[in-house]
Amino acid sequence: MSVLELTNITRVFERGLPVLDGVDLTIEAGQVVGLLGQNGAGKTTLMRIALGMLRPQTGTVRVFGLDPCERPVEVKRRVGYVSEDQVLPPYLRVKEVLALHRSLYPSWDADFADELLGRFSFQGKEKIAKLSKGQARRVAVTCALAHRPELLLLDEPAGGFDPAARREFLETALQLLADEGSAVLFSSHHMSDVERIAGRVAVLDRGQKIVDRDLDELRESTTLAVLAANNGVVPLDLKALDGCLGARIVRDELHGLFLGSPEAVRSRIASVSATQSPRFAAITLEDLFIELVEGRR
């Protein structure tokens, strides 16, 4: 049984502007999936639907085989959630916030919570109102992790973290849970974070899932072809080619992102421009994301 199973999810807030448009996503136990997308692509909505905070207008949601809207308490007890705009009661102290969560999650691991607090340099007496944004986020993350959830939904979890805290969070806490078999779906604009811990990447663009692949496989199977612009070939020509994920003009160059080996891509490009020979550039995940999203405009 999949930990999270989203099928044909559509959600609309404004007429004619679907935030999610027929999205499918399945996550198995132990998988760490990075959810990428521009602002407004639908990442937060997808996570809120997965947790039962929003209802989809089409499609089905199953978390541990349950409908999170129908059985919200059972589902939420097994899920950890940190959102980018999460707020904690400012009049409580850190230890009281943890006590609040401990009373709600039967699987709360007090030792693990103490360990996380120690790593984040909290004593527990600090008032939430006095914490910085990053410190408050650490408390929220501690609350989301300490009951050892079977599914972690992290919406920009490391947004307010300094680099050291981010690495601590990603490599230690998150990895620890993933090693224990927890599934993780996290969104981030830090591609280095995604590259560091995600085994799989899903990319949302304007409400649609355009990529859902194993990260290594994605890196190996995509090729960035660079041609001279203003030389008879336009982005639309490349987009019409088989395997083209996106094409765009960057200053005086034409970039085309393709699935397939450089040799295969070269032969495809030859069909639209016999005179030009493309150059193939090394591509990072960040470049891939930008080419993919911008190249579809």
């Binding site: 009661p89 007496k125 600090e126 008032k127």
Partner: peptide, 20 residues
């Protein structure tokens, strides 16, 4: 800043949070 232990509140953090 008040970081002292202070008096323990009568209500649990959950009840206090819901109430407030």
């Amino acid at each position: 800043e008040d970081v002292g232990p202070g008096r323990e509140p009568l209500l649990s953090p959950l009840t206090r949070t819901i109430l407030k």
